[in-house]
Design a binder for these strands. Structure first.
Lengths: 129, 129
DNA sequence: TTGACATTACGAAGTCCTTCGTATATCTTC
DNA sequence: GAAGATATACGAAGGACTTCGTAATGTCAA
């Protein structure tokens, strides 16, 4: 059996992934401290989540040292794209374009951001041609 | 107590909402038949879900007839925007622009769709000005 | 009215998510 | 090597999600 695609991370799992993406490989202690600043959590709670995430394949664990070091298995980009594809399938008839249009309509996007998006569009159209 | 914002629909709940958005007000039988074509489900399972969704405020129920008639409480658009805002908060630092860029990078968008997006950008920028 | 049928109500089971308390193992320092 | 600090492992509890079986209720026709 080959490795399967990891499942969609839950809310608590995603908040841990965000810490790992920001910090890189980290111990439970590291993650716990960072996470507790915004949202106080028990140390063993974070540990348990990381253990489960290891089983699921969301993170990888280096057990070389006493304090195991965890890291996100997939990049932030890759995970984000998977989440978007998933949402598109579940709520937008699988259409990424519909999703984008709705996200843009939902206001809040600075002029600079709009420009950046426009440039991205240019780039995409350039490649497709 | 005033009405609270309905919670994020689960996967099964969302698939029911999709049917309601497409069909409009429907009985359990209606929803069950439509839903079972793609994904066979028990009749009482659908009923139970609709009852829970009524409690949560995701749908409204008209009990005038013997066969209760259910309908989505919020429009497809409104729900989609809420889901997008939620995902932006959980995985994109709350930035809708980042989300859009990532969605666009994730390939798949026809030329026509790209044009439509571009026009939408024009419209937004026109209003903001 | 009564029987057949359709519908809703109720409750329970199995799984997953989240949290935490306690036990066990390991390292450091003296 | 023993004490204390620090880690991980284990298991359990409570709640949410999904599914379904069975009971109760309502409707209609003969």
């Amino acid at each position: 059996m080959t490795e399967r695609v990891p499942p969609r991370p839950t809310d608590a799992e995603l908040s841990i992934l965000r810490v790992l993406w920001r910090r890189g490989p980290s111990t439970v202690r590291d993650v716990h401290e960072e996470l507790s600043q915004e949202n106080p959590t028990g140390y063993t709670t974070v540990l348990k989540l990381l253990q489960i995430m290891t089983e699921k394949g969301l993170v990888v664990r280096d057990e070389a040292q006493r304090a195991h070091v965890y890291d996100a298995r997939h990049s932030e980009q890759k995970t984000q794209r998977q989440l978007l594809a998933d949402l598109a399938n579940r709520a937008f008839d699988g259409s990424a374009a519909k999703l984008v249009m709705q996200a843009l309509s939902g206001r809040k996007a600075s002029a600079a951001e709009l420009t950046a998006i426009r440039e991205l569009l240019d780039k995409i159209e350039g490649e497709t041609k």
